[in-house]
Design a protein around this nucleic acid. Sequence first.
DNA 1: GCAAAAATTTAAAACGTTTGCAATTTTGCA
DNA 2: TGCAAAATTGCAAACGTTTTAAATTTTTGC
Lengths: 347, 347
Amino acid sequence: MPARVTTLKELAASLGLSITTVSRALAGHQQIAPKTRERVAKAARQAGYVPNTAARALVSGRSGFVGLVLPIRVPNLVDSFLGEFVTGLGEGLVSHGADLILATAAQDQAELDVLRHVVESGRADGVVVTRIAEVDERLAYLRRRGFPFVAHGRLLDSDFAYNWLDTDGAHAFGEAFDMLYDLGHRHFGLVTISEPMTFRHLRQDGLAAAISRRGDPSVRLDVATAPRFDRGARIQAVNRMLQGPDRPTAIVALFDELALTVMEEAARAGLTVPRDLSVIGFDNIVASAYAPPGLTTFDASIRQCAREIADMLLTVIADKPAEPLTRLIRPTLVPRASHGPAPRKTS
Amino acid sequence: MPARVTTLKELAASLGLSITTVSRALAGHQQIAPKTRERVAKAARQAGYVPNTAARALVSGRSGFVGLVLPIRVPNLVDSFLGEFVTGLGEGLVSHGADLILATAAQDQAELDVLRHVVESGRADGVVVTRIAEVDERLAYLRRRGFPFVAHGRLLDSDFAYNWLDTDGAHAFGEAFDMLYDLGHRHFGLVTISEPMTFRHLRQDGLAAAISRRGDPSVRLDVATAPRFDRGARIQAVNRMLQGPDRPTAIVALFDELALTVMEEAARAGLTVPRDLSVIGFDNIVASAYAPPGLTTFDASIRQCAREIADMLLTVIADKPAEPLTRLIRPTLVPRASHGPAPRKTS
DNA sequence: GCAAAAATTTAAAACGTTTGCAATTTTGCA
DNA sequence: TGCAAAATTGCAAACGTTTTAAATTTTTGC
């Protein structure tokens, strides 16, 4: 390996050219003679020259980074979301030569503070914001600040337009209802969370819309609500829904973790899925394939979404489009064995 | 919100001080009068001043970032490893004010190239390297370059010392054998991969060592090997091991995915786990808890390991310790329902 | 063969911070 | 009060790049 050239100055000196020329040659400017351009490119390659990120960022005002503030995570909550999401972002960014910065919020620090720090310090040219709440101060801040961002998810309603990509949970929940209705189900259960997340709202609305679209007054819907991270409360809520003979024959859960709880508690209560009870989830986490009898769910292809989010954000950064970019992704049904025909009425 | 002050110059001007003094005051230098220090700190807080990362990095030679090159991932391979690992790193870094940079390798790009780019561009002050192969050019490069790094995993053997943290797979596999032996098992199976990864080697050695330690000549060990990402070959190999009456009564898999395949194929072959066959995995992925009857496995607490790796790396960066830092983490057994007493001999 | 135009190259400033050294102010003590 | 020492503050250079404007070289047209 040849001696390493670390700066433009050294490279320029070794070529007998000015820093300016070398810089422009490497940037591919047309005003540099093609012969020179090539000579410089070759020398740079041989010397293993890599431009200094900080210097470039300082002068150009572009860091070449996209930021993501790591959602604060409940201690032992493990899922594959983050890994998939980050992988997808990376895949989307790499083709444009951008990299990802992950900033973590300290124990007692608000996510907004970290976001502000990332933005104000010029670490990143744009940010991705996930897990959007119904009203989200992060988006308000970014909007005020005029900083490029793409949201994964939507606000419930807002007085301003912004770039977002979201999964069409409303459609999925409508689809789930239609499928179950066609299988004869009339008494439904919805297991949901109490936190004000937009996706909860949208999915519930999608379900409600599908029900009213059907216009069958015999359709009933029970709702069980529990805090997202309170496993005990969740189990209680599910059991309340499951007990007694007049229980739903089909339960739709806001996401797979809830659906898996439903299946566990159903089994504990002596119910057989799907004979006595149909269960449908959302997210298609890995465990859903393994939990007997296999959970029917929707796949939102997080990785693919993240890749698109990266593309969108890079477009926003580069082109500053006048109209906000929005994208609604329809999740695909993953039929497994947790749903089936409604049980015959025995009562 | 007051008008934003974005540079030291502005902040200095608003205070009637020089840039130097403000810079030092914010850095907490002793030579600045306490009264001034406080005045500056207050003004900075009120103005929402955040120092420019690029400028600071340029002059100080420290970026405040730690790099991680995203392992190139097989298309639909999903696991929670990356998410946990990244979360742990973030948690470890945040207390020292550092952030994480994730660089992704493009489709046909070698991971080493990306690593080199991260190092040479000065983006990061140190890097974390995961999934160490038996012989790994990345470590050789970093060593040559004298760049701070911590490896998650070890080389098989090396002529140089380096910083690493690893899971004690050898111990775990010995523990698994001992437990199974005490349950009466004498005929063992090992399902492993064909790739030259150090962890494979260590775990196999740990198993072999435990067997020879026991000194019982009636102990037998069958080995099934398949490429890591070739599901078809894996299933074939497992079935070869499972077929016939003279099959192992206990199978240890290199990691949970393999163990889950074993359980699936065992079920398909009409074997009941753990009555006819005990199975033990390694990693404690989420699905292992859900796959019936519940896989007994070892938990390596990735998140905690990552946090320690972050600590180690920050120490290496700051203190340049003369002796390399090394840390061997003993994984904990997660007993579920996939292991039990050896079946009575029926032949 | 010469002036004008086009092509190519370069000098120097700027980006926002840290830091060695010098300048200034304050303090302590006779 | 005066002077040295200590404490505090400021000037200016440096980090490695991009970019504006200007300088230089080459080409073109007649």
